[in-house]
């Protein structure tokens, strides 16, 4: 397909503006993290540090058990992501490609659960976690979100847009439902798996509310919790540049993960290739 020069210029121009607007606050965050507390960083002329320093990073490392919290975050986000992507795509496949009694009712129930704000039921949820022995345990953050309504909903919508013929062919060849999912459906939906994996990983990594509720020692805290409780003291004795250093450390792995997961996003070939 030939593309007109003007189209290309317009597309690149729009994307450039989009990139600037998107990256600018993050750039500001990194720049602020390199400034000594004595340097102003609020004004328009304060984006570039005059006297860059890594002292703020050293300070965060003193305040927060960084390595340990990092490992916790990796476990919660990594394991959580893998389990979620598997269970959500499996259930999404079931809802998209099979007829079974109660299917619509169950699916509407699933949608309805998305409408309930979980914050209201914190006290019994805590009692349940306690009964399971999961207070101050990373399982409390991984298991409840192992299969989410929103993830299943997304996978169902995504998978339903694929024609069922390829599955039928495999079924005639004698493949079972799970094998069809594993060998035929999964490869076709890699863009969706990659997208959902990124979103699931980031959501778990950045979550602050539930870890703060269920985790009870700083060794068990995730990185985001440790960083987020820094600026709360009266008088804010943790200077902002130190906090910005903390958030920079916390965000950097996300950017890496996102870059890696993009290798699975191949454009435009998915269905065409299968059909062909």
């Amino acid at each position: 397909m030939k593309t007109a020069r003007t189209t290309r210029i317009t597309v690149y121009g729009l994307l450039l503006i989009w990139c600037l607007v998107s990256a600018f606050p993050l750039f500001w965050m990194v720049s602020a993290s390199l400034k000594p507390p004595s340097e102003s960083f609020a004004g328009i002329n304060a984006f570039i540090p005059q006297d860059p320093t890594f002292a703020n990073y050293a300070r965060v490392a003193q305040l927060v058990p960084m390595a340990r919290n990092f490992v916790n975050s990796v476990i919660v986000a990594g394991v959580g992501m893998a389990v979620t992507v598997f269970l959500c795509s499996l259930a999404g496949y079931a809802f998209a490609k099979f007829d079974f009694p109660g299917k619509n009712a169950l699916f509407l129930l699933l949608l309805a659960t998305m409408m309930v704000p979980p914050e209201a039921g914190v006290v019994p949820l805590f009692a349940i976690m306690r009964a399971l022995g999961w207070i101050n345990n990373l399982l409390a953050l991984i298991v409840p979100n192992a299969a989410t309504a929103i993830g299943i909903f997304y996978m169902r919508q995504y998978i339903s847009s694929f024609p069922s013929e390829i599955m039928e062919q495999a079924r005639i060849d004698g493949a079972g439902d799970f094998r069809i999912y594993w060998q035929i459906v999964l490869p076709v939906i890699t863009p969706a798996l990659a997208a959902w994996a990124s979103l699931a990983f980031i959501a778990r990594w950045n979550d602050f509310f539930w870890p703060l509720l269920f985790l009870r020692s700083k060794e068990m805290y995730t990185l985001m919790v440790s960083i987020s409780v820094l600026p709360v003291s009266e008088g804010l004795s943790t200077p902002w540049p130190v906090i910005m250093a903390g958030t920079t450390i916390a965000v950097a792995p996300l950017v890496v993960i996102y870059l890696v997961l993009q290798s699975f996003q191949r454009e435009g070939l998915a269905l065409g290739a299968v059909k062909g």
């Binding site: 290309r8 989009w18 990139c19 606050p25 950045n206 602050f208 600026p231 870059l259 454009e267």
Partner: peptide, 26 residues
């Protein structure tokens, strides 16, 4: 983003995705 002829795809996609990645404290 879906234009096949786009260069530096990964960089652009990562950059436009940064707002969702950035920690809320920052």
């Amino acid at each position: 983003l879906n234009h096949t002829w786009l260069r530096a795809k990964r960089l652009i996609r990562t950059t436009v995705f940064l707002p969702y990645v950035t920690a809320t404290v920052a």
